[in-house]
């Protein structure tokens, strides 16, 4: 009787946990599992495929654990065989070297193909032209530059639906990571380095993004939004930025680059030419304004 009660209690608790979690998850967006871009979709599918493969290992492990623990427990002596001299079995051991080996071989093939297919540096093939956006991580905000439209924005980027976008990513502060989970994933933003992330939105919406690598005290508040919109709305968004009247000159950029948090979304109608490139290159040239006294020798070069 007591045993039955325990089983029922377990069932009730399990049902409760599943019910409440299900209800909670239905109410919220889970960006990684509910992507809004072609790359995000493929990454989600890959995640599900590999999880199913992993089940092939998990099920036998949990089954054997449960069955052996139950059957060979001390109290079950009468019904279970005891072979204290058993030291191994070549056949069995070969099986669990080979079978996991095969599963890993499958994963390896998947890894190889998906790593090339989903290489963030690879341009997406499309009939439409690729939109270029340059991203500079600053302490603690994100600057998006549209070089061809000659506009810029802080903490918000707009992209047109169903058109490939190429984000070029660098940092003008410490190293951090650019993460837009509903669209494509993560890429480190590093001073002196220019990385890339190619993506294409296939749903309209506002998608939150994060700085995913600790970067100082404003790190948690260093968030951004990527808004995917129709072609017309995108043109309007660009137009609004072009008419915002505020110019991102070198001086304004220097002020913006100073550490701050909670910067409101800001648009710039003009951007200092070559701002992104000079930002990347300034870390690779000896003349560095922010270097301290120790590099006095280097500046003379």
């Amino acid at each position: 009787m007591k045993k039955h009660l325990r089983v029922w209690l377990g069932v009730v608790i399990a049902a409760l946990v599943v019910g409440v979690s299900g209800w909670y998850l239905r109410l919220h967006t889970i960006p990684v599992l509910q992507p809004a871009g072609v790359i995000g979709d493929k990454e989600r599918n890959l995640l599900i495929f590999c999880s199913l493969l992993a089940v092939l290992i998990v099920v036998p492990v949990f089954t054997l654990l449960g069955v052996f623990a139950w059957k060979y427990r001390e109290g079950n002596q009468r019904y279970a065989k005891y072979s204290p001299e058993l030291t191994g079995n070549r056949m069995a051991e070969t099986i669990w070297w080979v079978v996991p080996g095969i599963i890993v071989a499958i994963i390896s093939v998947v890894t190889w193909q998906s790593t090339y297919a989903l290489d963030p540096f690879k341009q997406l093939s499309s009939a439409k032209p690729t939109l270029h956006v340059q991203v500079i991580a600053l302490d603690w905000k994100w600057l998006f530059i549209y070089p061809n439209q000659n506009i810029a924005s802080v903490n918000e980027a707009a992209i047109p639906l169903n058109q490939p976008v190429d984000f070029e990513i660098t940092s003008d502060a410490v190293m951090t990571s650019f993460w837009d989970p509903q669209l494509a994933g993560q890429m480190y933003a590093m001073p002196g380095m220019s990385a890339q992330q190619n993506l294409e939105a296939n749903k309209i919406g506002s998608f939150p993004g994060w700085a995913a690598n600790i970067s100082g005290s404003g790190f948690a508040r260093m968030t951004f939004t990527i808004r995917s919109m129709s072609k017309d709305n995108f043109a309007k968004w660009i137009g609004a930025a072009q008419h915002s009247g505020s110019k991102l000159t070198a001086a304004r950029y220097a002020a913006l680059a100073k550490p701050s948090t909670g910067n409101p979304v800001t648009y710039y109608s003009w951007v200092q030419p070559q701002l992104y490139n000079t930002t990347v290159l300034k870390y690779m040239t000896p003349k560095l304004p922010q270097l301290g006294k120790h590099t006095a020798g280097a500046t003379r070069l």
Partner: peptide, 13 residues
């Protein structure tokens, strides 16, 4: 799962 780079892009850090 995380050993597959394209999955890791989504769950790293």
């Amino acid at each position: 799962l995380m050993s597959v780079p394209a999955i890791d892009y989504q769950v790293h850090n």
